[in-house]
Amino acid sequence: MEWLTKFPEMDRNGLREFKKTVDNAFTSFSRNYGEGIENFFDPLLSFLVGFEKLFLNTPWPITIFVILFICWLASRSIIIIAGTLLSFLLIGYFGMWEDTMSTLAIILVATLLCIFIGIPIGIAMARSNKVQALILPILDVMQTIPSFVYLIPVVMLLGIGKVPGLIAVCIYAIPPIVRLTNLGIRLVDKDVLEAAESFGANYWQKLFGVQIPLALPTIFAGVNQTIMMALAMVVIASMIGVQGLGLPVLRAISNQYLALGLMNGLAIVVLAIIFDRVTQRIGKRMQRYKSD
């Protein structure tokens, strides 16, 4: 009756061999191809570094002015502008300006990357049920797998640095935009689509003239979620060498610096709130045609 009380597990040697084989296979893969893959991501690195330098080298009043101007264009709300101004002044005053700029840079690049990759995938999913059935489980895995777990292969492959951090952030942050692009396009009124078809619109005319414009508010909710999730990844990404607000938080955890942790944590929160409010406003403004 032993088999009932003790789970019939693989024997220890076999298990060790199994793990070893997987590890060795991946190690040799990363030895052989790691450099190639690294080179492949080089343009991304220079893009990210360029952004970071731009943010850091621009005199702070100009940076604040540009940020406020973008917020104004996007939201047209005095309250949001005032809040943003106050937040950035406080962040600067408490000595977190440079870390904040680094974080802004990586969030911006990660979001752009997610948009450029995520929206076409979402469109492909909306077009075909087969593609949807294929991609949905992958998204489920990406969203539920503990982020530390996929940090391991990424670090093995690309080492410690900005690009692996960026990739980790993107893996974590891309699912919402893919899902919501798919959903938004699928929710477009069938009657309206049929009308476009009856006038002889081709696939691209339907996609860019009807489906995407009508799905845009939903897609934008996806962008909003993607930004929020990217911000949430900042601390974890700092474990593999991403500069920014996450790094002091990490230091605060290991050394029990309460004030340092709180300050930088709150700075992340403030960034999140600004991003959220501004993008929500954009989303609302896209639906102006719905109001009278």
């Binding site: 009124d189 049929e194 009308a195 476009a196 414009p213």
Partner: peptide
């Protein structure tokens, strides 16, 4: 074609 529920493009 003209549709029962109008099917105008809302945007």
């Amino acid at each position: 074609m003209v549709f029962q529920k109008f099917a105008l493009f809302p945007h």
